[in-house]
């Protein structure tokens, strides 16, 4: 029995299950916020899996996701800006919870892997993920206006 894998399974069953529901139903604002939060959730789950399987190379998946996930949310913020403007989705509490959760898990993983390059990489992924999540939330809350056009 492996505690890391149990944690990942619980996170996926609860969090990602809720995310599928949240992204498939409800107003557009809630859906984009859910998409943003799913990035953090899946990234943390992948890091837990990497530790659970004892495969430090899998951290690369988390690294890539921590970079591309927030960029993906920025795509929605940019190209759905028109639809989001009437009611910009703000989720400060959810963003704070995601950031705190990410920080807690990443620090626990870094401690478990011991000092060294692996721990530095984990902390880097965590920092990228939290920054990206916060910035993407800001972008969704009206950070990117729709572009005008010379006619």
């Amino acid at each position: 029995m492996n505690g890391w894998l149990v944690a990942a399974a619980v996170l996926l069953a609860g969090g990602l299950g809720a995310a599928v529901w949240g992204v498939a139903t409800g107003p557009l604002g809630r859906r984009v916020v859910t998409q943003n939060m799913t990035t953090s959730l899946v990234c943390v789950a992948v890091l837990l899996l990497a530790q659970g399987y004892r495969r430090p190379a899998y951290v690369d998946i988390g690294l890539e996701l921590s970079l591309l996930g927030p960029i993906g949310t920025l795509v929605y913020a940019r190209l759905l800006a028109d639809d989001l403007r009437p009611d910009p989705p703000r989720a400060p509490r959810l963003t704070a919870v995601a950031a705190a959760g990410t920080a807690a898990v990443v620090i626990a993983l870094a401690v478990a892997s011991g000092p060294g390059r692996a721990a530095v990489k984990l902390l880097l992924v965590g920092a990228l993920l939290i920054t990206g999540n916060v910035v993407a939330s800001r972008a969704l809350a009206g950070g990117i206006p729709e572009e005008a056009r010379h006619e």
Binding site: P70, L74, A77, T131, G132, V135, R138, A139, G142, G143, I144, P145, E146, E147, A148, R149, H150, E151
Partner: peptide, 15 residues
């Protein structure tokens, strides 16, 4: 047509 520049919020731009 040339699209006009957009004013992206500063934290997003800097990020």
């Amino acid at each position: 047509v040339r699209p006009e520049p957009v004013a992206v919020a500063r934290p997003v731009r800097r990020y």
